[in-house]
């Protein structure tokens, strides 16, 4: 047996540094990573520098002003309000249905024909382009159910986004539930709990961080989507809600932050470019914040599982 001497170690190190193709390959991989990093960095810098005229001049005014035809007065408050309402409505609908459906599929359905059908449908729904969901919303929520939703309203938009995030919620919840060790369930049954009691007090608490991560990510997705609500009919121009009450506003015109960015980019860039960039900064802050929460929760979950 050869003892590993310092000489041998030096020799091995030398060979590693002489491995030119390996070094080049490693360099190329780093370059790929660098491209991804650089584009993210460039994007943030572009948003910041382009919006500097607004960020330095009237940051709060920009956030809390309504739409206007005057570039010096226009703000994104209606967009923020619309995005918050869209996120709230879609969460209220998609979370109970999605989480409930996932629990059913994982805990009750077993390997029935029904569950296999739903599994296939969910996986395919997750891959349907978001604008197709806009068509669904336009036909069902705007045209067929217009009497209840008020047509092109924030309710229609919210319900459309709920359909959009439903498969995401189902899939992430299923994964979280699948990760719960079956010993825990069996222990629950062993002390005489019914199936529902096991789900409620064993499975759901242990799967909660995973489920929460999925729901937070789906909220981020709903906040960032523009294509479906564009088709459903978010306003891209200027509008006033006047003195409508809170519930009346749910049936009238609406817009959302990504929709406003789209509208700003369609205007001449000299006067409205800063608005597009400023709104981008706002939406980036929201989405990155939501994302960090999700990443943090998953890291905590990892730690807990390791213990």
């Amino acid at each position: 047996m050869v003892a590993i001497t310092t000489e041998l170690r030096d020799q091995l190190r030398l060979r590693r540094s002489a491995d030119t193709s390996g070094q080049i390959f490693r360099g190329l991989l780093m370059l790929a990573l660098l491209v991804a990093f650089a584009s993210l960095l460039a994007m943030i810098l572009t948003a910041l520098t382009r919006s500097w005229p607004i960020l330095s001049d009237r940051p709060l005014d920009f956030l809390f002003s309504n739409t206007s035809q005057n570039p010096d007065e226009a703000g994104v408050f209606q967009g923020i309000k619309g995005s918050v309402m869209l996120a709230a409505i879609s969460s209220l609908v998609a979370f109970p249905v999605g989480i409930g459906g996932a629990i059913y599929l994982e805990e009750y359905a077993g390997d029935s024909r029904f569950s296999r059908l739903v599994q296939v449908l969910v996986r395919n729904l997750a891959g349907v382009p978001s604008i197709v969901y806009g068509l669904l919303g336009l036909a069902i929520f705007v045209q067929n159910l217009g009497g209840i939703t008020g047509g092109r309203s924030v309710i229609s938009g919210g319900l459309t986004l709920a359909c959009l995030v439903l498969p995401v919620v189902i899939i992430t919840t299923q994964e979280a539930i699948r990760a719960v060790p079956s010993e825990l369930r069996q222990a629950g049954y062993g002390i005489g709990a019914t199936q529902w009691e096991v789900i409620r007090s064993v499975v759901l608490p242990s799967a909660a961080p995973g489920i929460l991560t999925g729901t937070v990510l789906s909220v981020a997705r709903a906040v960032g989507e523009a294509a479906p609500i564009l088709v459903v009919g978010a306003v891209s121009g200027f509008f006033q809600t006047g003195t409508l009450s809170f519930l009346e506003q749910t049936q009238s015109f609406f817009t959302a932050l990504p929709m406003q960015i789209f509208a700003f980019t369609k205007q001449p860039a000299q006067t409205w470019g800063a608005h597009a960039a400023g709104a981008s900064v706002a939406i980036l802050l929201v989405v990155v914040a939501l994302n960090s929460v999700a990443i943090w929760m998953r890291a905590r979950l990892d730690q807990k599982l390791r213990k």
Binding site: A36, A220, G224, V287
Partner: peptide
């Protein structure tokens, strides 16, 4: 984080 950037921002 790059995955979560909304597509309108990439358009901008």
């Amino acid at each position: 984080t790059l995955a979560s950037v909304p597509s309108v921002v990439i358009g901008m």
